[in-house]
Every structure is written in C-alpha cells, then in structure tokens.
Design a protein around this nucleic acid. Structure first.
Lengths: 285, 285
DNA sequence: ACTGGAAATGTAAAAAAATTACAAAATTAC
DNA sequence: GTAATTTTGTAATTTTTTTACATTTCCAGT
C-alpha cells in the first residue's frame, strides 16, 4: 500500500508530536523526501528522534528507508489500485478511478498471460492461409480493431459482425485457416457454436476469452488474461482493453516474425494515408 | 525520465569503473536502493567515491538523492517505462514491453486530461437529443465501442462507418444533437469536414483527438489525452486505448448523472443477455 | 618505446546524517 | 494528588556520505 495512504489511515493512532510530523509530510511530501531528518524535525517543530520513531511506526527501517517508500508512493500519484466508482463521485474522482483501475487490470493481465500461448498463436497466425476475427456485442469492436491492424499486413482477412456471415465463413474453412474469437465471458452461445463449426472444418481456433469457459474449451489455443471483474456499470470495461492489448501483442509478434522487409510495407500503408490528411505544421522550437 | 533508462542511455559515456556500478544497479535495482554506498561499492568492486561520482554524473545531488530517483523509477511494478520493441525481442520481451508502454501511456494520459472538459462533455451528452459517434480507420472501432456502451442507455444513437452516411447524418443535425468524433491524429480530412457540417447545423461537436489539430479547432469541446507517439509499428496502439478509456469515463459520468433509477435499466439490459449465454457453473470453493 | 599530461580511481580524513541511550516532561489511572 | 506509564527531547554514538588529495592508469605526441 501507498505509504501516504497508510499515514492517513493511522494518523489517529499517532501521538501529538508524531501527528505534527505526519501533517508536515502529507502537506508537502516532495519537500519531505528532499529534507534531512534534522530539517524535517525543525519544520515539524519536533526533535529528530521523534521523526525517526514516526518512521519506525510505519514499519520502515528508519528515516532513509521511509523516504524511499515515500518516493515510491509519489512516483505516480496513487499507483494502480483497483478503486471502484461510487455513487457520489465527481468527475475528478471517477476519471482517475477509471484510469487507475484500467491500469491495475492491465497489470494483473500482464502477470497472468501465458507467453508460450502467445508465441504459439503468433506462429499459427504467421502461417495462416486466411485469418478471421469474430466477436459479438462489446467484443465486436475488438474484432474490428484486429481487422484494422492485420489488414495492413496484406494477408487474407475476414471480419463480420453478422452472426450468420460468421457462421457461413466458418463453414467454408479449410486446414490452414485461423479463426480468432473474442469474448468477454466465453459463454456467448453463438460464438461457442462458431468455434465448433470452425474446428470441424479443420481451422485452428484461437480464443481470447475467459479461462475455463465453454468457449475456451472449444479452442485450440486460448489466451486468457485474468482481469478483475467489471462490476461497476454492468458493462465490460477493463477486459476489452486487455483484449485490445493482446491484439497489439499478436500484431507486434506477427511483424517481428515476418522480418524487416515486411515492415517497409507497413510504412507504405501509413504513407498512403498521408494524402488524406492535413499537413502537420512544422514547429521550430 | 526514468533514471534506469537514463543509465542505459548514457552507459557508453561512462568510464570503466562507473560502468561496473551501472551494471550492478541495472542488474538488481532493488538491492541498490537498500544498500549503503559502502556495500554497493563493494559489490561493484569499486571505491565509494566512484559510486558517488556515478550518481553526480546522472544529475543527482549525491548517493541518497540517486536512490530516491531510482526508487521512484521502480515504483509500482512499472520499472521500465515506455520501452520500445526492438528487432530481436522474443515473445517474453515484446509482451511485457507492450503491456508496460500501454500502462505508461495511460498514466500520462490521465495526468494530461482536462477534467472540466470531461465534465462539460458529460453535461452535454446527458442533455443530448441524439448522439452520434464517428471515427475512421483505427478509430472506427472506438466509435463502435462507444455505440455499444451508450446504446445501453436507451438514448437515440447513431454510428456509421461509412463516410457518406456520416456526412448525411451530420447534415440532418439540429440544435441539441451531439456529435462525438474520434481521431488519432486529428488530421483526417473527411472527419474535419464532418465536424464543420455538424456545427453549421447547430450540433455540438465533441472531439476526442490530438490537441491543437485541425479537428480540435473545429470542435466545441476537445478531449485530448497526451499520449507518447506510437512509433513502434506504424499503427496507433496506445492512443486508441486512451480513447477507449475516455469512452468509459464519459459513459460512467453519464450514468452517475442520470441517477440510481437509471442504473436499474442497465441491469435489465445485462440480464436480457443471459439467456443467450451458457450458465456459469457454481463453484463451491 | 618513452614521456608529459590529463583523466580516472582510490585512500583517508572530515562532514553530515541518522540512530541510540538515557533523562526530563507530560499524560493517565487510580 | 501521586505513581506509573507514555511521550518527548538532549546529547553522545554510530553510520553514512562527501571532500580533499594522492596515486594510478591511459593516451597523445615524440
């Protein structure tokens, strides 16, 4: 836990002088980490050992160790804690809570992702005759995003929002085709059926979905980032962002595998967009 | 900048002994911040003043100050901020680099976002007669995602991928309509034109796009998260995720503003999806 | 290969900072 | 109101860092 929060939490248990120290630190933590114990004691109008005792009370080894902890806490505000949005939150609160919980989720996702499965997926994608990206509901936009990325690689791509089209596409699969399915829950019936159909037709199915879900069981490979439940507003928020990061990772792996010549191609695609854009003004400072 | 990156950057300019110190620190920064100058010097097999000189060379005031900087860099599980993917990276490396740089970007975005503009946007969205979400290319999926979120709110929504449809839709705007435009660069000509058309027809235009871009100048309100340039693979990665988080924030602000009764509605939408899903097995542990 | 000079590194002493031990003051319980 | 306990401060001690200077190493030019 952030040591500043800890101070706030324990401030009632402190003695009078220790509280003085706490207040000075909370008031200006930046100053605190750049002061010696002597100057800080002077600012708080207490003796040096009091400051030292204060540090120990917070389970640090001493004043220098305390400063280290404080510095870490200060590094980027309130780091990656999964705080939930409450009823009475103002824009300030909910904005930073959403940013922070998204970052926290990505942090969890990163730790849980299975690299060997990523690597296998990249393998399979690079060798695919045709790649299809499907998702429904909130995951439809993830599939579309994947389309936008892989489209640039100049490989045969499919991406339909329509479940009937998705189904037909899977029925026409042959060996060497790869179907990538995105689903937050892994319990969307039509998508599980699609996975079955695709596999019956010898396609390789990669699922980006929840671990141990019905969909996950139908897939050849499953990429399941652990993401704390999205309970906030009854709609998937963090999990779809984790899925997008996985798309980025697969796309990156793909280009790295294809080598530098291939990357020139990407630059061409990007340059071709230029004419449809307003020129960026040169800046001289 | 993160001091660890700085060390890596300057390591070639260091002298032999200083490099020894650098290596010991890079190898185990955690150990470094918990060591005294004496123990660190011993580990690196150099003298204490050498360590001190090393610290000064990195523009810190001395060893304790250096440890503070290092601690900040190490804070909260993001030890290496915004590392770029290199040619030779294996799956392990590029996976964690992408996760980390995404998190770092969100962190930057959070700091730069203007809360008052968020608040104004929420204001306007809650009072909108009709809301349209438009984006092209990589931003099309962001618009689609916004559609998926706001659709649940049971308010009149528009979202077209087709530029002609987008245009027509904007021509039919009247006062009270809100158009939300997503663009990574803010320089996509057709989108700038759409913004003009919408404003000529008295709609309010909210842009989620780059600061000071042509599009930003055409908008009534502009939400511009600062995101480090996506140079990696010639395609927008971090910025589109920042845009999605903004969608989450707007959606959250929207529901909070509408009050608790409104939230029951959301639950209904979610429950209605249940029948199309496989039941989750109960777990008893 | 040698030499003068600059840069790098180390040694030892000085300064600064933090910690400890203990005494004085304040607070609390009875 | 006083004894016991806790809190706080003083001063000495220890640890840590920094400085000043001596020595070594490296390199350019002969």
């Amino acid at each position: 836990m952030n040591i500043l929060e800890k101070i706030n939490l324990q401030i009632t248990t402190f003695s009078k002088s220790e509280r003085k120290v706490a207040e000075v630190i909370i008031d200006n933590p930046e100053q605190a980490i750049h002061s010696s114990i002597a100057t800080l004691a002077k600012i708080a109008d207490v003796s040096e050992p009091t400051v030292n005792r204060f540090c120990r009370r917070l389970d640090t080894k001493g004043f220098p160790d305390f400063k280290l902890h404080l510095a870490q806490g200060l590094a980027n505000g309130t780091p990656y804690v999964n705080r939930h949005v409450d009823e009475g939150d103002g824009p300030e609160e909910y904005t930073s809570k959403i940013f922070e919980s998204t970052m926290a989720s990505l942090n969890t996702a990163r730790k849980s992702i299975d690299i060997s499965q990523i690597n296998r997926s990249v393998d399979i994608l690079t060798q695919a005759k045709k790649i299809s990206f499907f998702g429904l509901g909130a995951s439809a936009s993830v599939a579309q995003d994947a389309l936008n990325k892989f489209f640039r690689f100049n490989v045969p791509i499919n991406c339909f929002e329509d479940i009937v089209m998705q189904r037909m596409s899977c029925m026409n699969c042959t060996e060497g085709d790869v179907v990538v399915l995105f689903s937050h829950t892994g319990r969307t019936k039509p998508l599980v059926e699609i996975a079955e159909i695709a596999r019956q037709n010898d396609a390789t199915v990669i699922g980006v979905t929840a671990k141990d879900s019905p969909l996950a069981q139908e897939c050849n490979i499953c990429l399941s980032p652990d993401v704390p439940e999205d309970t906030d507003l009854y709609m998937p928020m963090a999990s779809r962002i984790a899925h997008l990061v996985i798309v980025d990772i697969l796309a990156t792996g793909f280009t790295l595998r294809r080598g530098p010549k291939f990357r020139d191609n990407l630059k061409k695609v990007k340059d071709s967009l230029r004419s449809s854009r307003f020129e960026k003004k040169e800046t001289f400072n």
